[in-house]
Design a protein around this nucleic acid. Structure first.
Lengths: 234, 234
DNA sequence: TAGCGCCTATGACAGCGGTCATAGTAGCCG
DNA sequence: CGGCTACTATGACCGCTGTCATAGGCGCTA
């Protein structure tokens, strides 16, 4: 359960196993190293960075404590940064899957899917966890420069796919990024409120209220198959 | 510098000095107790709850460390809860002042003012601090039930005035609360992104993108003086 | 002056958390 | 077999933090 392609265990840099855009799915137990990054993100999601101890991460990942030193010589800071990076990539990758799940891609539909991921979790497993990127921002933005940068990169890795998806739906280029920012901002804020209230009300509210604005941004009409006129082409 | 009207120093409950809706302004040095609550909020804003030590609060408030035990027998939990409560009341009270500052009250104008408070701070003093309520949510929502409730109350104390302001601008009653939630969600999320990027871009973006949707919600026309037709009256 | 509240002042303590140091195991190569 | 590398395993250290305990000052009433 922990062998074979652990060749990426170079404790040097944050060198991913080359293929970054793989199916970094729910619980990647590709090896103890990834398990620890994933566990760190999970624990940060719940109690924040400061409340997440290295020993806790090792226990949660069912990994030996000594391996933390081995795989993350940069200490907690490195581990947190990689957890944040993983979360950003994860969020970005999900966008494509959301699109695939939509019968007909619309901005409001995409946003509804993004929100639904959270309402589903909260209604099934409770309000214990939030967004790890938000947690890292709150806890480390001022104290740890490298983590602040990791968080910024995570937001970029999330906003990018959303903006490209909007472009693919016919949203004019100059509005894709602003709207993506608006979507993610609203979602993050609604997650906070939902956790505080232990109620998904805020999440469903932002999805409903933002829907018309998002769909109204589609100005380029699509063909019957959903394809867009190519840039510059007729 | 620490005498006279410290009659509110009852270390019992969270008994405010009767007049709650006073001008709880920037730095209320009404007494050492309020100073400590205010300082706690300030420090939580920066590094989160866990990174905020009791000793740090005392130093920041220029208050004796022993007073913490005296005024907050409930320990850190009580202090954090009161800081969150203060922040919620503060945010709620500012709404009225925003309205007064607007030449002609519109939903988008109110939101722009709410956002501007943050862009002003970030552009003048830097991106060191975020929202204390968000920080408390991230750090305590799962671990400390009382703080989670305090956070929920703070959001309510903030959403309420915003919703009432919207109602006063002609937004139909069934949309005031949803729109207030949307405004606060977007703002909170944009604060996170702004801190991460050390750029006010996200803040200005949500203000700009949300503006038409907010103003479009005004359905009841106002009279020339800005007054509304009374509920049920002609 | 004594007594008694409010508040202040410190020292101690117990626990925890990140990190270092050291040593042990497993597999592979020669 | 020796030696090397990758990984695991623990124990210890040091600093910090929330809290408790104890005691000191201060202002009032009697």
């Amino acid at each position: 359960m922990a062998a074979e392609e652990t060749s990426d265990g170079s404790p040097s840099e944050t060198s991913e196993p080359s293929e970054t855009s793989e199916t970094s799915d729910e619980a990647p137990d590709r090896g103890p190293r990834e398990r620890m990054v994933f566990s760190a993100a999970q624990l940060i999601r719940r109690g924040g960075v400061a409340a997440t101890g290295m020993r806790d991460v090792a226990v949660h990942a069912q990994a030996p404590r000594g391996s933390l030193q081995h795989y993350f010589p940069g200490g907690k800071e490195q581990l947190v940064n990689e957890a944040v990076g993983w979360a950003g990539r994860y969020a970005g990758n999900r966008v494509a899957r959301f699109l695939a799940a939509l019968p007909e891609p619309t901005p409001a539909g995409l946003f509804a899917e993004m929100v639904r991921q959270w309402t589903d979790e909260y209604e099934s497993t409770g309000f214990a966890a939030g967004c790890p990127v938000a947690a890292a921002t709150v806890d480390c933005a001022e104290s740890t420069a490298s983590t602040r940068q990791a968080v910024a990169a995570a937001f970029t890795a999330w906003t990018g796919p959303v903006a490209r998806a909007l472009a693919g739906m016919g949203v004019p280029h100059e509005r894709t990024e602003p709207l993506a920012t608006l979507m993610i901002s609203s979602l993050e804020g609604a997650i906070l409120i939902a956790r505080a209230e232990e109620d998904v009300r805020a999440l469903t509210t932002v999805a409903r209220e933002l829907a018309p604005l998002l769909d109204a941004a589609v100005t380029v009409s699509r063909g019957p198959a959903g394809e867009l006129p190519a840039k510059g082409a007729d």
